[in-house]
Design a protein around this nucleic acid. Sequence first.
RNA 1: GUCCCGGUCGUCUAGUCCGGCCUAGGACCUCAGAUUUUCAUUCUGGUAACACGGGUUCGAAUCCCGUCCGGGAUACCA
Length: 558
Amino acid sequence: MRDPLRPPMIHPTPRLRFAPSPTGPLHLGGARTAMYNWAAARAMGGTFLLRIEDTDQARSTDVSLQSILAGLRWLGIDWDEGPDKGGAYGPYFQMQRLAMYRATADRLLASGHAYLCYCTSEEIEAGRKQMEAQKVGFTGYNRRCRTLTAEQRTAFEREGRKPNVRYRMPDARVLQVHDLILGDVEVNTRDFDDWVMLRPDGVPLYNFACVVDDIGMQITHVVRGNEHFQNGIKQRLLFEALGAECPLYAHIPLILNKDGKKLSKRDADTNMLDYRDKGFPAEGVFNYIALLGWSFSGDRDVFSRDEMVAAFKIEGIGKSPSKFDDEKLRWMCGEYVRGWTPASLVDRARPWLAAPATQAQFSPQAARLHTLAAAGLELPAVPAHTFQFQAAWLQNVLACYQERIAILSELPGKLPWLFQAAPTMDAAAQKNLAKEPAAKEWLRALADVLAAGIAPPSYRPWLLEQDKSDVRKGADAAVVLPTKKDTAEPVCAFDTPARIEAQCRALVDRLGIKFGSFVHPVRAALTGTDKGPGLFDVVFLLGKETCVDRLRAIGNAP
RNA sequence: GUCCCGGUCGUCUAGUCCGGCCUAGGACCUCAGAUUUUCAUUCUGGUAACACGGGUUCGAAUCCCGUCCGGGAUACCA
């Protein structure tokens, strides 16, 4: 027996694979498995390939396959060989490799490692029931066909029975196996079944196809979910029977939900594309998933793909299952959103902002968004001309929300006050307006101050609904403002937030009131809520006419 | 039932292999404070864990045994 820690001589450079079965979309666990294989391959300068295990013909679909590939691409996990890329070790679909399985099964049959089994599923089930009744512990196939004579076989054949090919499990053999994550584990072959390798129709079962392909594709390291540990034992035996060196195995712990149960559809989005379509930053999701069972360092959680690759070691993956925590995922996403330039925020937010009619031109995700809208998500309503003619203004708007969102779909619900003729007043706003008896007087006073000042001209999308003659009306006057508070404001023909603040402070002094009590009703009148960007940013964004109108409308109301 | 694996703050984890630097570190959450025109951001500080019981040892989160709890496997799914 060779040293279990010595790198296999299967191939001069490491070759790792992600082998999904296209029976559903890419989910969290699969994404992580793919990621770890990918990272390990990249870290070792090896090859990462995709193999499609489509032998479950009843459940495999092309839709699922496409969804899996799209999910991987979205996460930035790329492969060197695979279904759409080809490669020297193809084909990469198991259903296209049937001849290899048949040939290998024949070899195993000839060498006595496998035998033909003519049992029907009813007979197998009856045998299992019987074993259970005997309470022997181990239950499984009763191995009736292990010792069939030639006469018995021909008799079955004459009955029209078609045989499965079964692996002949060695009797009570103790195996010491080494797992890169679990370490040394001892198992006994008597606890394993004589499992089916090949169906009568020539379609292989998982453990068999997996080994034939891992040999054929010269896989050196297998990183996969812990539910495959026992399969690994069966597979090692098969490698041995075929005289092939087996790869290094790493069985990673499962991801559980908050209750410690296996993650299911109800717990979180199991489809990676849902994260994409809801506006989770891919980098954030990638980063978070990487942390489920692996740590970059003792004191850092935020890292790039490249940094992960530079630091990744299979042996560094933890042994215990982790629970999925969507609060930390959200925080992680916020970290990335805040790190973007405002220009790139506009770019990324576009599909979530565009009015339904114009979404299609921005993103193929549009159709998906309508589904989300139907599911109750607030619909975005930024008209197309905003993107076209008010780019700088829009960028300023988004910059104001950059540190207030973590997921792009949170954006549209925060912006209506900028696009409606009059903001809808929420309860908090109404309260703030009613609190100070003199508030309406202040609003009128501020309206007069702004009317006399040179705040930027207002961009009023609601007016353009009626009059489309000049969509540039309400010019895109606003220069792009710096986002850092301590940076000097650029030269601007209009009043900047800083100058608006100075005017407000002067007014507050003149009125002889407290600044704080002044701000709240003003914010309410302007935005209809008690949350959002700084008040002077609000004025700057809304522009002179809109502010004056809104302040007077409420200031003069009875 | 049987076999295998796991068990450090509520959560993700560092430390475990090569026992002492661990009066157990970081992050999320939470709480308090600071900044501030709200919210958010940012900053400071706090609460909070070695599953339990036995060993071995001068000394154990780290090694050994047992218990308990959790998970996986036990398919003509993967």
